[in-house]
Structure formats: structure tokens, C-alpha cells
């Protein structure tokens, strides 16, 4: 942990801006029919994503969920292959075979998103097992939501990683809704408190829109993991601004009318911009950063537009390492 340099702080803001700009563009592209299928954005949750990913190092692992564009971006993935994947182009990070729901960028330790809620949690634990058996000091972080917090596999994984003292962080992104279902109506007790039953620290970050608060909590858990002291459960309270998925039109307004407005007032990017200005970063520098990021997203879209769609034969490779598809 220690004191973060201005360079690191600006990088945090850059990555939050990237996630925001990437997902806002993706949202538009879905609505215009440029992105097929479905897309879940992290808009509003940027502090929680970047606070966590920037507490990791190169070589560390993470697994994600259906709302996971932000995770590889937060870990440093270039935007072009991610956007190309969303559109289904040959240059996509998964060759166009994963799409928004299955982004993975192994180059930055992103072991993949899972469209099945909770399903990727033991994958991160397995990466932590691998690091532990191989004797490296790598750690792994499992991102999951408040919905996945009620999947049994989370508790199997917390138990097993506790027994084996694995270097893994279970990070619950509590955006307070599982699609339309308010978390408090389906969750008994406090998610972070469940850690106590497994003999591991449980931390609830109430100020989940504050990137530094998240970064502090995750950094502490990462330090414990690297020191061989085992897993930690962290629950970060946050909020998604958009619908569960882009284009979704629910018949009932399941969120109170003024709730979103209240959360917009503590927007993570705006809050952190004010913090950066408070420590002497010039507004012009921050404006320039925002412009740079928008240009990056423009470049990612241009890269995507210029990329071909995959050849039909691509649908029939990558299943096995050595066996041809048998019709």
C-alpha cells in the first residue's frame, strides 16, 4: 500500500474513464444494432472495478461475471480487441467466439467472464491453488455480484480456500440488484459477515464509489494473500446506473425513482476528479485525460470497423488442442 504516486492516481482515473467511455459507446452500439446479443455495463461501478484491479500486479489472476467489460480494462487490456470481440470480429480478444459475456484476456491475467452467475468463483480459486502449488507469490481475485453471493459454490470455495490458505480474494460487487431483485429481499444478513463462518476476514466497503477506499481494502487483502495468510471476502457497496442489460425494458420500475439521482451525486469519476484537483492536479490535465480516453475508444471502434468477421471455419476450431471436429 503506502502512498500512491500522482502517476498511479492519474492511471486510476484513466482506467475509470476508459471503462465509462467504453461502456457508454457499447451501449449506443447495442441500441444501433452494431453489437449483436446482449451487453451488461459497469457504468457507475468504475471505482469498485479499478480500486480492485489496480491493487493487483502483472501476473495476478482474476475471474469475472456477466458484467465484466470493466475487469480486463481495469487490469490494463487494450480496448481494440475487447471492442472487436463485442462486435464479433476476427480480431476480437476471443476471435469472436466469446462476445460480451465471455471476454477473457489471459495476457493481463483475465481468466474469463462467466455468463453463469457464481460459476467462475472456483476458477479464481483454482488459479490461486496453482500459484500456491508452484510456489509463486501470485494472487487471484474472483469478481462476483450480490446475486452470486447466494450461490452455494461461493461457500464451497471459501471453505476450501480457507482450509488450503490459498491466495485468493472473493470480491462481491454489491450493486444491490440481481436483475430486478433487490439484494436485501433475497439475502439473509450481511454478505461480508459470512466470512466469519469460514475463519477469514470479511470487509464491507460502504464507500464503494471511492476508488481509494476500495483500493485500500483490496490491497490489504492482496498483501495477506501474498504473505500466505489465506483468503479474504470483500463486499463493496456500489450501484449500476443503467438497466441490468442494455436494451432491457422492464414493465415495473423496481428501483425507487430518486435512488439513481442520489447515486449520481456521488459519481466515482466525478468524486475522484475533485480529489485529484484537491491535491493539485490541474483541471486542464484532467480534461486532457478525458479527451485522450475518448480518442482511445474512437480508435477501438475504428479498429473494430476495419476488422473482418471471422471465417466460418473458425467456429470449428479451439474445442480441443489436437482433435479435429468430427461431423
Amino acid at each position: 500500500m503506502g502512498t500512491l504516486t500522482n502517476e498511479t492516481l492519474l492511471e486510476m482515473q484513466r482506467r475509470m474513464l476508459r471503462i465509462r467511455a467504453f461502456d457508454e459507446r457499447a451501449s449506443k452500439m447495442v441500441k444501433r444494432g452494431h453489437i449483436p446479443g446482449t451487453v451488461h455495463t459497469s457504468i457507475g461501478q468504475e471505482a469498485q472495478v479499478v480500486g480492485a484491479t489496480m491493487a493487483l500486479r502483472d501476473g495476478d489472476y482474476m475471474s469475472g461475471n456477466h458484467r465484466s467489460h470493466g475487469h480486463p480494462i481495469g487490469k490494463g487490456s487494450p480496448l481494440g480487441p475487447l471492442m472487436a470481440e463485442l462486435v464479433g470480429k476476427a480480431t476480437g480478444v476471443c476471435k469472436g467466439k466469446g462476445g460480451s459475456l465471455h471476454l477473457a484476456d489471459f495476457a493481463v491475467g483475465s481468466l474469463g467472464e462467466s455468463g453463469i452467475v457464481g460459476s467462475s468463483i472456483p476458477i479464481a480459486m483454482g488459479a490461486a491453488l496453482s500459484a500456491s502449488v508452484r510456489g509463486t507469490d501470485q494472487v487471484a481475485l474472483a469478481f462476483f455480484g450480490d446475486g452470486a453471493a447466494n450461490q452455494g459454490v461461493l461457500y464451497e470455495s471459501m471453505n476450501l480456500s480457507g482450509v488450503w490458505k490459498l491466495p485468493v480474494i472473493f470480491l462481491c460487487e454489491n450493486n444491490q440488484y440481481a436483475l430486478s431483485t433487490p439484494a436485501h429481499t433475497v439475502t439473509s444478513g450481511v454478505i461480508a459477515d459470512r466470512a466469519a463462518g469460514f475463519g477469514m476476514p470479511g470487509v464491507r466497503v460502504e464507500e464503494g464509489q471511492d476508488v481509494l477506499a476500495v483500493h485500500d481494502a483490496v490491497s490489504e487483502a492482496v498483501a495477506r494473500a501474498r504473505a500466505g495468510e489465506g483468503p479474504t471476502l470483500i463486499e463493496v457497496v456500489t450501484y449500476r446506473y443503467n438497466e441490468h442489460s442494455e436494451g432491457l425494458r422492464l414493465g415495473t420500475d423496481y428501483r425507487p425513482a430518486d435512488e439513481r439521482e442520489a447515486w449520481l451525486k456521488k459519481d466515482p469519476i466525478q468524486l475522484f476528479r475533485e480529489h485529484l484537483q484537491g491535491i493539485g492536479i490541474a483541471p486542464a490535465e484532467l480534461d486532457a485525460l478525458e479527451a485522450e480516453v475518448l480518442a482511445e475508444v474512437d480508435d477501438a471502434v475504428a479498429f473494430t470497423d476495419a476488422s473482418p468477421y471471422p471465417e466460418p471455419s473458425v467456429a470449428f476450431d479451439d474445442l480441443y488442442t489436437d482433435t479435429e471436429y468430427a461431423a
Binding site: S120, M125, G126, A127, V153, L160
Partner: peptide, 9 residues
């Protein structure tokens, strides 16, 4: 799941 994660890493 742990075996899958370990195998990929």
C-alpha cells in the same frame, strides 16, 4: 472448478 482454474494456469 478449482481443477479447471488450476489447469488453465
Amino acid at each position: 472448478g478449482a481443477a479447471a482454474g488450476a489447469a488453465m494456469t
